[in-house]
Design a protein around this nucleic acid. Sequence first.
DNA 1: AAACCCCACAACCGCAGACGG
DNA 2: GCCGTCTGCGGTTGTGGGGTT
Length: 246
Amino acid sequence: MEEGQGIRKGPWTEQEDIQLICFVGLFGDRRWDFIAKVSGLNRTGKSCRLRWVNYLHPGLKRGKMSTQEERLVLELHAKWGNRWSKIARKLPGRTDNEIKNYWRTHMRKKAQEKRRALCSSSSSSSSSSCSSSSGPVKFFDSGGSEISASSSTKKKGEENQGVGDPNGYSMDDIWKDIDMCDDHEGLIINQDCNYSCPALNPPSWEYYCGDSSWKMEEEESKLIFSGYDDHNGRPRLAQANQNFFY
DNA sequence: AAACCCCACAACCGCAGACGG
DNA sequence: GCCGTCTGCGGTTGTGGGGTT
């Protein structure tokens, strides 16, 4: 299709963002290939969509996950597994990508800690499953401190390899391990989480994400988009949008 | 001060399902 | 029913910033 000649990749520029916002305002957030073409952005429709959904979409929240959100993610992941988009729909303002990323880093870290705690508490026994030197190496063992003592020269990126990885350690394995750890704490999670999070289930996000009932005139998009944040280079869009929508 | 490491996050890739001609 | 295209999703990778040694 459009693949081939001069298709841009990599980070988006401010100019590109503005352009995309304008064209989405004009044509809606559906026809991505069309938007990619008419906008003059040398991007694929896919890339445009992704940029919009994960970054430019109004109503996106920024910043750290709250404890409530974190718990909800845990709860929903336990229920649905890696259905990130589904989970994201229950977390207004959060994208599947964000949740996915969050899960990968934070949950893995937590799992490591839990695992370590378990190991230390049962270290007097044979604790073969905790061994970092024999038997199948669990994913988060590979990033754990015990191991890093022996392989502390871990290069950047190696932890990612753990995912796909040399030991054939798949995502499923990771989830299994995490679940294992969660089993020890599952009750706690459920206890803490027996709220249904009413505040997190308003129809509003469905509305945003819904079938592009969202429309924005070009002028409005200009107003909303007031430039980039000084600190992180992100558009000030999200914040402006809060005002726009609420 | 420099090197290294870890974390967070943006972005890409491949695949599958939906949809229209 | 078939085929091509578009869209959405999940997995993976790349990179910059901040903290630590």
